[in-house]
Amino acid sequence: MIDERHYNFAFLDEGSKREIRRSILKAVAIPGYQVPFGSRELPIGRGWGTGGIQITLSIIGKEDVLKVIDQGSDESVNAVNIKKLVEECTGVEITTDSEKASVIQSRHRIPEIPMRNDQILVLQVPTPEPLRIVEPREAVTKQMHAEAEYSGMWLSLFEDLTQYGEISISSEYPVMVENRYVMNPSPIPRYDNQKLNDSETLYLFGAGREKKIYAIPPHTEVVSMCFDDVPFRTENFEGKHCRLCGAAGVYLDEIIDEKTGEKVYECSDTGFCRGRRERIS
């Protein structure tokens, strides 16, 4: 634990945490809308998940159980680092079991096991503005959202089709929320986009450097932007499975086997993979 004489529970002072919670409430009330907030500086790199961490620190209580993942992994350096900070300034229980956690903070992945309505998923966001790819100026994109003026976005998807025969966006594929706001789902793979739609759980998105919070409350309609005659396609792992637990139809990490030099696959969600192996054995 860090020194209580110098630091408050959950690092930030109570006023700051309350302010962030208010922004979260507003975000929940307007799904997909980016709520500006007075992002605080944290002892972790700005651009390394400080938006997510501020949300986690603001909502976490002493009874909460926290899981932190990065790229789906519990052991990734960034995940370990964030866990360490939250643990040191709150003393909450940390877990790698996504079903045991009440709060999960993640970067680039949504856990494989569907989350429940008594859980919250906090996602770290580098670029909250989905329209940034078509318009660099914040003042303009803000207005585009206000007017639901998304033709630039549609056009950019269409231009992709004419140029490549398909849409070239790989991860952080834009979604339409409740047919109102275009939203950046954070750099999750396209495979994870479907989990946002009509989910049981609350998704909170925090962008610390860009000072925005947004949310997808449970049972919100979230549609990946595409055309009627061009279906949205997720990453293709057909015929591949995890070499550790045998799972197929999940998001896989591609690894080069050191001995054979062959491409092999493992579950990206390490907690999910471990659980499967424990059950099998």
Binding site: G45, V77, N78, R107, H108, P126, S171, P189, E235, Y251
Partner: peptide, 14 residues
């Protein structure tokens, strides 16, 4: 500096 963090999930997607 965040570019030093792992990005293999998004890179896989790419």
């Amino acid at each position: 500096s965040h570019l030093k963090l792992p990005h293999y999930v998004t890179f896989q997607s790419k």
